[in-house]
Nucleic acid binder design. Structure first.
Lengths: 192, 192, 192, 192
DNA sequence: AATGAATGAGTATTCATTCAT
DNA sequence: GATGAATGAATACTCATTCAT
């Protein structure tokens, strides 16, 4: 009962997630969706708009992972849960991670579309707020929460960027453990 | 007295550095090199092999930036110099940074070519050794130097990935200052 | 209270008049008319038929410009008024002028459709009759009125063809003045 | 021994001359030339450039027809010969005539390319000079030669525009005779 | 060592039109 | 009367690559 429009989007997403940007051709998407290439244009004006929607979907998915962390009881738990959910997101959807944080094609998209910059900012702010809370509650020492958020996010992005490159352990158990040890190396420095 | 082969490589590199991956077409490279497109095939089997050499060149350049840090007097200075040189590298050659650390096309390359993995490992090990030294000399507390290297490198990559995405301050002065504050936030936690 | 059929025709005409033949796509017409592209087919069998009607409309408009000239008092005035009205027609509707007298697509239409040939002939005959009258009244010397009509029409068409090409003065004042000087150069030769 | 480049040009010309602008597709030209569509791009940058050359060829052909008229003994003969050669040109190459004087696509070309405007002006000036001579030699009465040239050219263009539309006699003998009668109707008015 | 010619597969996109509803 | 979905053919053009010279 999914509409063709949704099917196209899903296929575009899958195509991108499996083959990267260069595999994202209208024709291939159409084949995957079982329709003619031109039929896509009934639903999306052009490739850019379609890709834009794919990216939006990526951000939406990411946000869905993060959001529940807000409901934890303490600032410390909310931060930890945030980091935990972010971890899950990457392991569940590594290509989405790339799409949002890594691919430079997406960066061009980001530069052009204000709404994507907004999406990006929202997730950034989510970290900032979590850190602000931790500083307020005394779990972390006073610091510039925006800059600390940038640091945490940097480490997060870089960490999984290395992971995807194959330069870190590949088993999920190992990478999870290393992730948490790395997180704590940073947080320890920020603590008191 | 540079050979045509070198000219081609240099042009491919310049083309990539200025226009990104999509600008890296055999034709454009040929035009830039002042030769015919087919002449490239005298020197490189195909585009992939040429691109492979571009990536190699990127690694070599990066290594050249890092290496002088070895000559500093103390372990702490050698680490600081390493981080300083890495900073210079990114600001001087942002596209090379992308090429080596960000672009997923390169990651495919990495996966396929052992020599690139080797290059990658060498730069990784450079950090590890610097950190080992710092721990040995008591500048940093004892820890797993490889994992700490991964952490530092992660933060480094993620930081400039955000920078390139336009999510961090864009002026060189500001980004440099933020870089060092971020570095020290991490190192402080690792110190004692 | 205009029917959809009329709306479509009007939009097709406007589209043609503003964007030329290449702008005359069913989709664009539909958008302009505020209906779906397929709805057009309720009213016109295909693009050709629709275009045919546009041309018909062009002829009708042209005829409307010419006709009032019949009511002038003398043969000379009727001829002058005819030439004056034809001038107004071109300056008011240059695209219609193209459509009727210039575009070779229309010529194919003409070749295929007898009714258009008829329309064409009617406007041609209008000139012929005007000239016959002038000869009868002694304003012009006796000659073959059909051939003189062809001459006048030729000059008229060619003149504005050059005008549209940008090879004649572009301001309305100038082109009008040149038009009348040209007309009189011809009429002087035909007079006595 | 004609080069492929020439073959392509010839096929493009033929294609245009036989099917008009809408028949002028790279694919069709390629088929006609017996090469692949992409091979065209080895020789012409794009369709516009190719078409530009076709138009140039048209002007060149036209000029070749006109030029010999310069060698006649008297101004009157030079003018008559010019009109005679122009007649031959149209009857020999009606599509070229359309290309140069009628097709509105060419007008866009004209607007964009200075060299075509120059070609156009040259043929225009040819008439102007002929008329100036006739006025100087007393064959025609003193008048503005540029404006008279515009008039003659207008009549010429319009005349054959009607001819191509099928609104004038189609046999070569008849059209030639009518042409000369029309020419003389104009020249008589300009004489003394 | 290098070139010019050519190719086939591929790109996004537009178009007139058909069909089921 | 009208729509949304879909199609197949066509458009200009780019690309990496091959081949004969």
């Amino acid at each position: 009962m999914t509409s063709t429009k949704d099917t196209i989007l899903a296929c575009a997403r899958d195509q991108f997630l499996s083959e990267g940007y260069k595999g994202l051709s209208m024709r291939k998407i159409a084949i995957k969706a079982g329709i003619s290439a031109t039929a896509i244009y009934r639903h999306y004006d052009n490739k850019e708009e379609l890709f834009h929607h794919v990216v939006k979907k990526g951000f939406a998915t990411y946000t869905q992972y993060l959001r529940p962390a807000q409901n934890e009881a303490t600032a410390e738990l909310r931060l930890t849960k945030t980091l935990s959910n972010a971890l899950d997101f990457v392991l569940d959807h590594p290509r989405y991670f790339e799409l949002i944080f890594v691919k430079s094609d997406t960066k061009d998209e980001l530069a052009r579309h204000d709404d994507l910059r907004e999406d990006s900012k929202i997730s950034f702010d989510f970290y900032t707020v979590r850190l602000q809370e931790c500083m307020d509650e005394g779990y972390l020492k006073k610091d510039n929460p925006g800059e600390v958020a940038a640091l945490l996010l940097s480490a997060f992005i870089g960490f999984f960027s290395l992971y995807i490159s194959g330069l870190l352990p590949r088993t999920k158990t190992e990478i999870k453990a290393l992730y948490w040890r790395s997180v704590h190396r940073i947080l320890d420095g920020l603590a008191r």
